[in-house]
Amino acid sequence: MPPHPETWLKVTPAGLWCEPANLHIDPARAVPRAVITHAHSDHARPGHGAVLATPETLALMTRRLGEGRAGEVQQALRYGETLDVNGVRVTLRPAGHVLGSAQVVLEWQGARAVVSGDYTPRPQPTCAPFEPVACDLFVTEATFALPVFRHPPAEGEIARLLASLRVFPDRTHVVGVYALGKAQRLLALLRAAGYDAPIWLHGALAPMTEVYESFGQDFGDLRPATVANKDALRGAIVLAPPGAIQDRWARRLNDPVVALASGWMRVRQRAKSRGVELPLVISDHADWDELNATIDAVGAPEVWVTHGREEALIHACAQRGVRGRALHLIGRGEEDEATEAET
């Protein structure tokens, strides 16, 4: 009988820790040895000793945190490759969330645990598609774990943005997007919808976009919005961090339509309280149906929930005979809440 996951996978103050391999997964503070699922700041913190991640994640982390701060030693592991760490087999599988995002598959004495990080089961054009992995323990996020969160197809939301440009041809359409992942996804979706005019970027979005481009992605004609004049931005699409779309930076825009691309935009009150004129429901997280379908697909008898609305997901697990446990990891989900805070 394989050992129960609780005997070798533990929650420490720094986060989830695989004891036999002496590896932390997405630790909240600096540790000697870390596996990083993806480069968002609530998962990839600075100052670790050794860091194991996909080549894309290492590149994004290094660009975001600065040379030398994304692990003293970096070790790249491609999707599907396996590394033996003190008898624990470690494999990374695509999580579909952002470029390089991975689920960490840990195998120990016949037991298999999957730590999924953040994941997006529906395929999207800027990263490798999510692969469900059968396991004994599935560790999941629960950002949108309420049945009111069912993300509509992103293409339809892009169509709404383009329809708005038709009704307001002179107004700048400024879309609040997170710098890593959401920005590049919007770019790819706009190009896929046939929008071939220049797209203007806030300076904060450029570094992550350049890393995507260095991995072969082509977003067409991108221009810096920060130095553009009002006339050039008439009727243009501008992408900017959520904190900038209504603050002083936005004064350079021409009578802007303020849009925000986020799964939270599904709820009117959320959009209202942000003063958003065009909410776009585009999320890089699993919605309610996808969370539940993934739990069914991996077939794990036990599910641990790292952060989010765990009580609803655990309730839904219990109805199917799956044991759920809330980990209450500290510092998670801040990436999403960043869209709520003023910066």
Binding site: L146, P147, V148, F149, R150, R266, V267, R268, Q269, R309, E311, A312, H315, A316, Q319
Partner: peptide, 21 residues
């Protein structure tokens, strides 16, 4: 499910919107 509905309504705050979602 009544439990999930109650949590959802509590989160959304508007009956028609909760039901539509």
């Amino acid at each position: 499910d009544p439990v999930l509905f109650a949590w959802s309504y509590d989160y959304v705050g508007d009956l028609a919107e909760t039901v539509s979602l």
